[in-house]
């Protein structure tokens, strides 16, 4: 691990100031991703600004929905009564990831900023455009079973590893940030970026901006929402493909739908084309298959991951079927 200096921030302004003025400084939350990457030499910050004492842990009901503090632990969010009742997909998604020990430490803000688990990014002996811009992508000619099938570029085919963010994408979540220039809000779907020519820039958060909260707006579909994760083993594995789905179904017809995919792209992938197919259509197998086709229409698999295209279609159909059945039962 690289030597670094450590500072504990006293409040939000102090934290932001410290990182803005510091040389190659990073915020330290739960440390479940950053510290691992530092040990592996992938991340080499010169300064860590510990934000764990900031008052950003609250989960509270607002008139518009639910506000989750950036330092709330993944466990606290997943097990929170209001989250489970109003946004079940978020609880399911978080519980589908990592282990209880990690979820107890990991924060919401940190989860948004998780870095990819691409083998080549994680191993400093390989070239990687994300780690060393311009050095080349080792995954494209390498083993790319876990890599992107949507939205990749010729510079990077890594996928975003978060489960939580897939659920947030389906829930129209909004990320609230603080920075030297003041506060702003970034819709979750615009928070993460596709790799393009600059895979090293993963989010639209500026380096000196601090995530302070995530807002979940009330919606007619959030309560009927589920998460399905397909992975290499039952626990403690990243998604090969995951799906977050939320439906508002009335008399067998879909009034509103949200569909997002994980494990398939450089960002949590909101399937807008599929949502168009679903909205206004009958909640039946034919519709769900059409939605799955639409969601994967632009898919471009790599050498070793063609199976993920079909796997994603099947996962979508299965989850939509389950959510629709629940909705019928629940609405009766």
């Amino acid at each position: 691990m690289n030597p670094f200096t450590y500072k504990r921030a006293t409040d939000e302004a102090d934290a932001v100031r410290e990182v803005a003025n510091g040389k190659n400084a990073k915020f330290l939350g739960g440390g479940t991703n950053l510290v691992d990457l530092m040990k592996m030499g992938v991340e080499t910050p010169d300064e860590l600004v510990d934000i764990n004492r900031l008052a950003l842990k609250r989960i509270e009901q607002t008139p518009q929905g639910l506000r989750i503090g950036a330092l709330a632990s993944n466990s606290e969010v997943a097990n929170h009564r209001l989250v489970r009742e109003q946004f079940p997909v978020l609880s399911e998604a978080i519980l589908a990831g990592a282990s209880p020990q990690l979820r107890n430490m990991a924060t919401v803000g940190g989860n948004l900023l998780q870095r990819t688990r691409c083998y080549y990014f994680m191993d400093t002996s390989f070239p990687c455009n994300k780690r060393v811009p311009g050095s080349g992508c080792s995954a494209i000619p390498g083993f790319n079973r876990i890599h992107a099938i949507l939205g990749a570029s010729d510079k990077c085919i890594a996928v975003h590893p978060s489960d939580m963010c897939v659920a947030l994408a389906a829930l129209d979540a909004i990320v609230r940030v603080a920075g030297p220039a003041g506060a702003r809000q970034i819709p979750l779907v615009d928070f993460h970026r596709l790799p393009g020519d600059t895979p090293q820039i993963e989010t639209n958060l500026r380096p000196d901006e601090l995530i302070v909260a995530v807002d979940l707006p009330n919606s007619p579909f959030a309560r009927r929402s589920r998460y399905l994760k397909i992975r290499d083993r039952a626990q403690y594995a990243f998604a090969l493909v995951s799906v977050a789905a939320a439906l508002d179904v009335q008399q067998g017809r879909i009034n509103a739908a949200r569909l997002a995919l994980g494990g398939v792209a450089h960002k949590p992938w909101r399937a807008l084309d599929a949502e168009k197919v679903l909205t206004g259509a009958r909640a039946d197998a034919q519709t769900f298959r059409a939605a799955a086709e639409a969601a994967l229409k632009g898919a471009q698999p790599q050498q070793h991951n063609a199976f993920k295209v079909e796997l994603a279609r099947r996962a979508i159909v299965r989850l939509l079927t389950e959510v629709a059945h629940e909705t019928k039962g629940g609405a009766a």
Binding site: R117, Y119, F143, R145, D232, R233, Q235
Partner: peptide, 22 residues
């Protein structure tokens, strides 16, 4: 997973062993 005679997935996150849940 081999590449040029070298194990590519030499990490516990990508060399998948079953957990107690499996």
């Amino acid at each position: 997973v081999w590449s040029e005679g070298r194990m590519l997935n030499n990490q516990m996150t990508n060399y998948i062993i079953p957990t107690s849940a499996d």
